[in-house]
Every structure is written in C-alpha cells, then in structure tokens.
C-alpha cells in the first residue's frame, strides 16, 4: 500500500532555556489516499508537534528535526526548499485550525482573507483567476460548508459571526484549493458539545463526499470513533499502538490505550460523543 502521506521514524528535539529535550521518538504513521486516520493522545503526547512537522510549521529553532522522513506523494518534504514547501501548504495539504475565536484575523473580512488565500494558492499552482471568479469560488465553498447566506457571511468580519460559523469558515478556508489531504487539529474543542458534533459531522461528510484523506488530531476518543477508520495512539512522543478503530475499541493492547478508553465517560442515553474533559 503506497500512502499519500507517510511519516518515517520522525525524531524531534526542542531546545528551551539552554536545555534540549527529545519530544518525538521515531514516530511513523501512514495516511493512505481517501482514508480517515486519527492520531490520538493527551496534551504533551507529541501529536501537535507531529502535525506541525508535517505541515512544515515547526519553528526551527527551538525545534530541531533530528532524523526521519515525511513523504508526501513520494517526495520527502524535509528535503524540499522552503518555497517548495510553502507551495504545498493550502494546496496539496491543508489544515483546519482548532480555535475559531483566535484563528481568523479580526481586522479583515472573511471575503478578504479567503480571497487572499485563494489568490496565492492559484499563483503557486500556476493558475490565474479574476477577482470575480475568486469571489464566486469563495461563495461556493462557503455554501459547501452549509452556510446559508454565503454573500453575507463573506462580507462579515469575524467578530460578527458565532463560534460555530467561524469554525465553518476555517474549514472552508482549508477546502478552497481542493487539497488531497486535510489535517484537522481538534476542530470544535473550543465550542459547545452540540456545535462540535455538527462540525464533526460536516467535516466527515465533506471528506467522504470529496474523497479527501483526513488526518484527525485529537485527545478525544469519542471523536476518533466517529471520524476515523484507523487510529494511531501517541504517548510521550511515541506511537504506542495502532489499529483499525473498531479493533482498538474492542480489544485494546497497550495499558495506555486501556486507561484512555476507561476514562471516556459512559453516559447512557447521553450525547453521541463521549468527551474526555482535560
């Protein structure tokens, strides 16, 4: 099986206040095309560092990639020049940000922010589009994330939108250039449970309809169960277990996974998503 994204033996160090700590110890994972994969772990397990390394968002220093490869479509991302790397962001792989309240620039309209992303994505892909066509595409994607009134939404400033709407805007931003891989960083954790459920449902539907590969980064096993078919469990910078989602829940192997599953509150007749409150 040749995966769309393949992380091989990734080790990362962090240097702060003159002390170096290794935060990733030989992490390997695969995201095949069109597959929905989850990466689960508690805070500090290294899942965010893994994600940032994949997206090329690690600040070096303080981070230092000690060894390993990250293959995307057969190319090792870590050997690419900065501008080649930049060219992939938002076009080949895109990211759905976690906090809808702080991830949108407060002083520009949604149309402005989405239009700019599209403009530079087009430029990298060697396409050109008129400003009007760009707006049409922005409205189209906003409609895809089930916004009722795309024209009004796009003319709004983030402060005028609710948390759920902003999260949808963030998803729309990620979808603008139809990337093959979507990396979602605990989307909706900042929102209330009902809204989060809607957002996850939307994300799952979009991914299945459009045949995207999804890497869902989360600390929430309920989210894992709902959105993925295969899981990697991380703890202290290592992948401690990997399995089909159903297998993992039915028959967890490592003690760590067992304790994680035990921590999910079981509410009879409660919400569809169990939540592990941090």
């Amino acid at each position: 099986m040749s995966a769309l994204l393949s992380v091989r033996d990734l080790s990362v160090d962090f240097t702060t206040y003159g002390q170096t700590h290794q935060v990733l110890h030989g992490v390997s994972l695969d995201v095949p095309a069109h597959a929905q994969i989850a990466l689960v772990g508690e805070s500090g397990s290294g899942k965010t560092v893994t994600m940032k390394a994949i997206m090329g968002l690690l600040r070096q220093p303080p981070a230092h990639i000690r060894s390993g490869q990250i293959f995307y479509d057969g190319r090792d991302l870590l050997t690419l020049a900065d501008n080649e790397r930049l060219a992939l962001r938002g076009t080949a792989m895109s990211m759905v940000f976690q906090d809808p309240m702080s991830s949108l620039n407060p002083v520009f309209t949604i149309a402005d922010q989405m239009g700019t992303i599209l403009k530079y994505a087009d430029r990298r892909l060697g396409r050109s589009r008129s400003a009007r066509d760009r707006m049409a595409r922005v409205h189209e994607v906003l409609a895809q994330v089930r916004m009722r009134d795309p024209e009004r939404i796009s003319a709004s400033y983030p402060i005028m939108l609710s948390g759920g709407m902003r999260q949808r805007v963030l998803i729309a931003m990620a979808l603008l250039s139809e990337p093959a891989l979507l990396i979602a960083d605990e989307p909706g954790t900042a929102l209330d449970v009902t809204t989060q459920a809607q957002i996850l449902r939307l994300l799952k539907d979009l991914v299945t309809q459009r045949g995207l590969a999804l890497l869902m980064i989360t600390h929430n096993l309920g989210v894992v169960r709902e959105t993925s078919s295969y899981v990697y469990v991380m703890n202290k910078g290592r992948v401690v277990e990997q399995a089909e989602t159903a297998t993992l829940f039915a028959n967890p192997q490592s003690d760590y996974t067992k304790s994680l599953i035990a921590a999910v509150p079981r509410l009879t007749g409660g919400t569809r998503y169990g939540t592990v409150t941090p």
Binding site: L57, L86, L88, G90, T91, S102, N105, P106, T116, Y120
Partner: peptide, 26 residues
Amino acid sequence: RQDYIEAARAFGIPEWLRVTKYMLRP
C-alpha cells in the same frame, strides 16, 4: 504570536504579505 498569523502561514500566505498586511493592521 496570535493564532491567525500561524494560520495565515499554514494557508500559504507569503511572508512579506503576512508582515505588511496581516500583522501590521491589527
């Protein structure tokens, strides 16, 4: 240090534009 600057980076907005537009105005 705000998330939206990191987000702009992740969406492939070039650095000069991030500095002169996305950061300057706020």
